[in-house]
Nucleic acid binder design. Structure first.
Ligand code: FES
Ligand code: FES
Lengths: 153, 153
DNA sequence: CATAATTGGACCAGAACAGTACTGTTTCCT
DNA sequence: AGGAAACAGTACTGTTCTGGTCCAATTATG
């Protein structure tokens, strides 16, 4: 369905909330603050910690803290941290696609992948928080469409 | 992993190949022409038929034909036909998200969804065939690998 | 009208994902 | 030093979804 995992959604919510606090915050607190079930938010934070998105403090009085300011964390970074690399098709780069010989359209998907990655990289968590997403998108609007009607099904 | 289903990949290949033929074409023929397993390509065509991307002719001497010229079919249309609607998050539009009240970032995902949809709508199958994708995306230069998790972790 | 060719729709197996639970390690407070 | 709090890592289970297969409905042909 071309949707990202629910974990990623939770990650964004948790990170934005975490960015509003200046102190280290624990999983249960974040759970109550966001409404996300505690085990789940804990899992998300753990993953984010391994990926360096958040820094963790172990032991009592421990918790999580943003490793970078909200403005420096792109949506793409979060997605890649949780869901893994962003590659729309199986036949990318390394291309272990069996039908590549007869396919005809060689690495054209890479361009599409790049477009998606760019769109996601241009949006930061700060944009999500401040509702400034529209501004960012103004720049990357793909204006062409000079000749063709959309045909967007 | 934010990847679209393999079926969609096959659909694009099949459609481009179908666009090179002016006559109705059967599934087995398309299978041999593309290298995609016959049952799979048959299934793909069937789905595309229900979505109006291709028109079908049943019975003997039947087959499939493009309902619209290749230039009028966007990548987004194909994805939506196979994978369903393009909605990155579960909490979109209709919003049956349980955490919406505490989430804080109301419908910000919609903007991201729109960006993705737009990027995919700007590329047609003709672009894939003619390798003119770069032209369409010319406005937005894209680095191969965006800021990954990296974070010096 | 009988036959063959081809699409249409339903079905099943496998994998990926979300969510949960448990155990271990680290750190602060008393 | 001892106990409690919190993260780290792993493993397990249930569910959803994708991918592939099979049989029934439809139509041109002879
Ligand atoms: S389908 Fe994989 S290279 Fe074209
Ligand atoms: S998580 Fe669904 S609305 Fe924010």
């Amino acid at each position: 369905m071309l949707k990202l995992s629910k974990l990623t959604d939770y990650a964004v919510v948790a990170l934005v909330r975490l960015g509003q606090k200046s102190e280290v915050t624990t999983s249960p607190v974040l759970s109550r603050s966001t409404g996300i079930p505690e085990p789940t938010v804990a899992k998300v934070l753990k993953i984010l910690a391994t990926q360096g998105i958040v820094s963790s403090q172990r032991g009592a009085r421990g918790g999580y803290r943003l490793a970078r300011p909200l403005e420096e964390i792109s949506i793409a970074a979060v997605i890649q941290a949780i869901d893994g690399p962003i590659s729309l098709t199986t036949c990318v780069d390394g291309g272990d696609c069996d039908a590549r010989s007869t396919c005809g359209l060689g690495g054209q998907w890479d361009m599409v992948n790049a477009a998606i990655r760019h769109a996601l990289s241009a949006i930061t968590l700060a944009d999500m928080k401040n509702h400034t997403v529209t501004d960012r998108l103004g720049g990357l609007h793909v204006p062409p469409m000079p000749d063709g009607p959309e045909a967007t099904a």
